[in-house]
Computed example of a mutant assay.
Amino acid sequence: MTDQLRPLVSRWNRDDARESAEFAALLADYHLQTEAEKGAPAATAGDLPQKYAAEVEDPHAAFAAELVLIARYAGRAAGCLVITDRHDGRLEIKRLWIDPAHRGRRIATALLDEAHEHAVRSGASAIRLSVWDWRADAIALYRKAGFAETPSCDDRAQLICMVRDV
């Protein structure tokens, strides 16, 4: 049994090699799963499309201007969330991933709550995101967190755009 009964969310410590490796591993899992779901499975992170492989290979460069949140559960990195400032008064969630072994422990909710608190502190008017239409559980989670569907913010087929006012 663990003493930790809820996830702990903090900003990614870019100077911590272990935390950087954990974040890169979470990104790799996210992209490998997404590509498999799109019907274009990759065997390793190096086989991902270059845009995504670059995130895994060098998250420091890929997310230099973004806020990255890491959720820990029982002392292990269990999830991540990346927030981009769109410079139009809105923030955008670019990556939200929970290690499948840690799902069902309110980790995604804790990350979304912290993203909302960041939006409040920063004076943002809204947070937006896009999600693949086949990810029904994620869509339900976003709706429960106060996000609503909005006209498409992306030209890729099968993406649903959602927004939450702050």
Rank of each mutant, 00 (worst) to 15 (best):
P151Q: 10
E149A: 08
Y142K: 04
E22G: 05
K94F: 04
I139A: 04
A101T: 09
E66H: 14
C153L: 15
I98T: 15
L67T: 15
A119H: 02
L69Q: 08
K51Q: 14
R106S: 13
L111C: 14
A108G: 13
K144A: 14
V82W: 13
C161L: 05
R121P: 05
I83E: 06
T2N: 04
Q158K: 14
D58Y: 06
G75R: 09
P59R: 09
R164Q: 07
A42P: 06
A126E: 12
M1E: 03
V9A: 08
D58M: 13
A61F: 07
V166I: 09
R121W: 10
R11I: 01
F23A: 09
A77R: 07
A71W: 12
V131Y: 01
A36C: 10
T34P: 00
E35G: 02
A124W: 12
D85V: 03
I98M: 08
D58R: 13
D16R: 05
D16E: 14
L48A: 08
L159I: 03
L91W: 04
D58T: 12
L129G: 06
A25D: 12
A138R: 01
F147Q: 06
T2E: 05
Y73A: 12
R103L: 06
T2L: 03
R90N: 07
I107A: 04
H118Q: 08
A54Y: 00
S20C: 13
W12Q: 00
G89R: 13
G104F: 02
A40C: 10
C153D: 10
L81R: 11
Q4F: 00
R164D: 02
C80E: 15
I70W: 07
T150C: 13
R135P: 05
R156N: 13
Y52M: 09
L81I: 01
I127R: 13
V9N: 03
K94N: 11
P41N: 14
I83N: 02
L67I: 14
V166Y: 06
R121H: 14
R164A: 07
V163G: 01
W12I: 02
E66W: 04
R128S: 10
A110I: 11
R135V: 07
N13Q: 11
T109K: 11
L5W: 00
G39K: 12
L8V: 13
D3Y: 02
V120Y: 02
A119K: 10
Y52S: 01
A24P: 06
E55W: 09
S10V: 01
C153P: 00
E66S: 09
A40S: 15
A54H: 08
R14G: 01
R156G: 03
A145K: 02
R143I: 00
R14I: 10
R18P: 00
L141M: 01
A64K: 13
I83M: 09
A21D: 15
H116I: 11
A21P: 03
A54R: 14
G39E: 14
